[in-house]
């Protein structure tokens, strides 16, 4: 259940965004990805989930040895990948509960499991909503339509809890949340941590990492991992910002990395043209 990303290059409209991103996430690990705006964090998340808005120009992504990039978005989801969107899409006219049941049943069908009927599904969804302290009336509304920023993020985590992915990517799920909402979201994520499930948590803020404790922290800058380390790196960033990135090419990124999964992660950081931006 290992995700291996090797030298990934991604463009949008001919403009390079990711320039040699290398990362390995082993089962059960939580990786935090931090980094300045525009460094490619959301692009990375979207590409992992299978967005066709980007062009992969080089490198590879394998998931349990399979070529993830050759799979359509829905196939990746059915293989157990989940992206909590930074900006969840509002879709008027699609009923939230119906949507989520359709998604769950598509995945269950793929795995040879019986589909859930409306009654059983609703019981499950309400159960998960309760864990997130989310009013179950949101299940009966149009998908994300008119939801506040925080409600949308909760709805993302609700979907994650229902779909029970094996690898979840959370793209700035904490931004725009107050401290109570943050705690609830973290509770949702931690409820899924079982030693086998992996997480990639993209965030700007150390405070989320107090609640979802990562095994490894990476700094993405200029389209590649500029530095990796343990939780201490996040604290350092909180204190000093990304100014230290100017020194990234003289400090080997792997140095100070505690997690096994980070072995070799910083390899590509030195000499990355965009690393010092």
């Amino acid at each position: 259940m290992t995700l291996k990303i090797n030298d990934l290059h991604v463009e949008v409209d001919g403009k390079p965004i990711l320039r040699g991103l290398t990362l390995e996430v082993k089962p059960g690990e939580v990786h935090a990805i931090m980094g300045p705006n525009g460094s490619g964090k959301s692009t990375f998340a979207q590409v992992l989930a299978g967005s066709e808005a980007f062009t992969v120009t080089g490198g590879s992504v394998t998931w349990e040895g399979r070529d993830l990039l050759s799979l359509a978005a829905e196939e990746r989801a059915r293989e157990g990948l989940f992206l909590a969107f930074q900006y969840p899409v509002e879709i008027p006219g699609i009923h939230n509960a119906y949507f989520l049941r359709t998604a769950l049943n598509a995945q269950r069908k793929h795995r040879g499991l019986p589909e859930l009927d409306a009654v059983d599904f609703l019981a499950l969804a309400k159960d998960k909503a309760r864990l997130l302290e989310m009013d179950e009336k949101f299940l009966q509304r149009s998908l994300n339509e008119g939801f506040s920023g925080g409600e949308k993020k909760r709805n993302e985590v609700l979907q994650m809890l229902v779909l029970e992915p094996r690898l979840a990517v959370l793209d700035e799920t904490d931004s725009g949340l107050d401290i109570d909402a943050l705690r609830v979201v973290a509770k949702g994520v931690n409820a899924l941590r079982d030693g086998k499930r992996s997480f990639i948590v993209i965030t700007h803020y150390q405070r989320l990492l107090d609640l979802i404790v990562p095994d490894v922290v990476h700094v993405l800058a200029g389209g590649a991992i500029a530095r990796s380390g343990d939780r201490g790196l996040a604290l350092e960033l909180e204190k000093h910002g990304y100014a230290f990135l100017g020194r990234a090419d003289v400090v080997p990124a792997a140095q100070g990395s505690a997690g096994q999964g980070s072995a070799g992660l910083g390899r590509r950081s030195s000499g990355q043209p965009g690393a010092a931006r």
Binding site: G50, S51, A73, E74, A77, V89, I91, F99, A103
Partner: peptide
């Protein structure tokens, strides 16, 4: 809407 389509597909639909 392509983003909406991607959103639904990203859930396995």
């Amino acid at each position: 809407d392509e983003p909406a389509l991607f959103y639904l597909r990203s859930r396995g639909i």
